[in-house]
């Protein structure tokens, strides 16, 4: 393998190791990763069970869509939060100065954040998926291999939003920290997690059209009915490419602005 690729991989691993070491010694940190997804699964899973017992098979299908929606939306939420909070950990520990004067390139920083985001997301979503299977007999993998494409698209959307949040933190400092937790929740109405896009008023359907997750959830509902909606998946991929390219451009620009304004020296103060 090319020496520069190996060196790049070592730097990415270095930053990931720094965050993994935190989890190795702190069970509350590990618990926190799974806490919210499991709690969500309990609330919405029991709600779905209640609906299914009261109203029969159409409601059972809707219940399945509800549980699937909760589970898959957690993929996006945890991916976005995992990336943003990993970056915030560097700010909170006042370590960013050391990181940015090392040979770690900005794209390697992003790669390490994505790696940690994926680990954090799986640590949260896998227990919730197991709970859905154990308590409600809902097997998310019953949708077939297409579920992997749903997962991937939702993760990429989470990373794009996280990159935009990190850019705002670089621009506005600690004042933008709260966005790390809240920003993706704001997109929930347009992501068609629990209802089809057609339920929305027409202007909002156009907003939903540009949200990659809305196409994933339309695809998920089709998959629960035994149909693979390739057109929806293609739209999700297309929107994700646009979102990721836009977020990467914003990050690159804000990183340069931060270096010009001296924000890398004072961020978090």
């Amino acid at each position: 393998m090319n020496a520069s690729v190996m060196a790049s991989g070592q730097r990415v691993w270095g930053l990931m190791y720094r965050h993994l070491a935190l989890f190795r010694r702190s069970w509350p940190r590990l618990l926190e990763l799974a806490y919210w997804p499991v709690l969500q699964m309990c609330i919405w899973g029991f709600t779905s069970s209640f609906l299914a017992t009261r109203q029969g098979s159409p409601a059972a299908l809707a219940g399945g869509a509800l549980i699937g929606g909760v589970l898959l939306w957690e993929v996006s939420l945890r991916s976005q939060m995992g990336m943003s909070i990993t970056f915030l950990e560097e700010i909170w520990s006042r370590n960013l100065g050391h990181v940015f004067v090392s040979p770690l390139r900005p794209f390697e920083l992003v790669a390490a954040l994505i790696g940690m985001s994926a680990i954090r997301m799986f640590a949260g979503v896998i227990p919730a998926a197991l709970l859905a299977w154990a308590l409600y007999a809902f097997n998310v993998f019953a949708m077939g291999p297409v579920i992997l494409l749903f997962f991937l698209n939702l993760m990429v959307m989470g990373w794009a939003v996280a990159l935009a949040v990190i850019s705002l933190i670089l621009r506005h400092g600690a004042g933008a920290e709260a966005l790390a937790w809240s920003v993706l929740f704001g997109l929930t109405p347009f992501a068609a997690v629990f209802y089809p896009v057609s339920v929305l008023p027409l202007p909002l359907q156009w907003v939903a059209f540009i949200v990659p997750a809305s196409h994933v959830f339309e695809g998920m509902r089709a998959a629960l009915g035994g149909v693979i909606a390739w057109d929806q998946l293609a739209l999700a991929v297309g929107m994700n490419v646009l979102w990721l390219a836009g977020a990467a451009w914003i990050f690159r620009r804000q990183f340069q602005v931060a270096r010009t304004r001296g924000a890398l020296m004072t961020i978090g103060e």
């Binding site: 060196a7 070592q10 730097r11 691993w13 270095g14 930053l15 190791y17 720094r18 070491a21 935190l22 010694r25 702190s26 520990s93 006042r94 370590n95 100065g97 050391h98 990181v99 004067v101 090392s102 040979p103 770690l104």
Partner: peptide
């Protein structure tokens, strides 16, 4: 670079900190 005004991650052990930067510096 060294400065008392830029911290190393406080929850990591000294060895873990040195290992992180050893990786970052190749």
């Amino acid at each position: 670079f060294s400065s008392p005004y830029v911290a190393l991650p406080g929850r990591l052990t000294v060895e873990e900190n040195l290992r992180v930067y050893a990786h970052l510096y190749g």
